[in-house]
Each structure stands twice: as C-alpha cells, then as structure tokens.
Amino acid sequence: MRTRFTVWDGAVYLAVLLLAILLLVLLTVSKTEGETLSVTCGGEITHYPLSQDRELTLENNGYTLTVVIRGGKASVDAADCPDRLCRRMGEISRSGESVACLPAGIYIRIEGGEANEADFIAG
C-alpha cells in the first residue's frame, strides 16, 4: 500500500460521499402524515391504523419491544435489546419514516397518505 494519502484515496472518499448524496436525494422521506403503521416482526407483517391509540408488545429473537401509537404518531416505548437505539429514534408519523431494531429483527414503518403516489413517481 502507499504510505501517503493519494489522489486515488481522495477519489474513494469523494465517490462514497457522492453515492450518499445520490441515495439521500432518491430516498427522501415525504412530508405527508401517514395513515397506517406496518410492523414487521418474525417474518410477519401487520398493519395498524394510526388514528387509533394502542400499545403493542412485540417479541422476536428473545427480545421484547413495546410500540406505542398515540395521537397519530408511533414510537418504541420500551425495549430490552442491548443498544436501545430504537427508543432513541423517537416518534415517527410521516409516510415512509421507520424505526428498526436490528438485534430484535423488528421493523416499524409508516405507510399511506397521499405521499405514496408521489413516491412511486419519484421512483
């Protein structure tokens, strides 16, 4: 390997950052409020309306998560997974927003709202 930073190193940094920006533009989360919460847990997908407040207890991979739907927003309220990142990701309510808990293999995502059509058009 070269012992000093080369122009090729710079090209790698630039390419990675450009790819990040490109993906950011392509995957922008819409600003429209969503209608349903889709919950992926243990290979099963379940949908819940956001209009109805409720508390869900999800179990997968030996971890338990509590997902709360309140006032049209969803969040992970309690988790016994090692990093508890899912709790710190806060509330989601806009179409396309999501919270993933990798250790538990649980993924929640907001769907619906007018934004979905626009998402299809954007690709």
Binding site: A20, L23, V29, S38, T40, S98, L102
Partner: peptide, 23 residues
C-alpha cells in the same frame, strides 16, 4: 441484508448517513 430480511426497501433510508459516517 436488512432489505432482504425486512423485505422493505425503505430500510435503505439509513444508508446515506452510514456511508457519510464510513468516511
């Protein structure tokens, strides 16, 4: 891998931030 596992391309939304941090 997460896309395959969750079956939802929206999980890729984290990728731009991860790529920036990877530098």
């Amino acid at each position: 891998a997460a896309w395959i596992y969750f079956g939802d391309a929206a999980i890729l939304g984290y990728l731009p931030w991860l790529l920036m941090l990877s530098t």
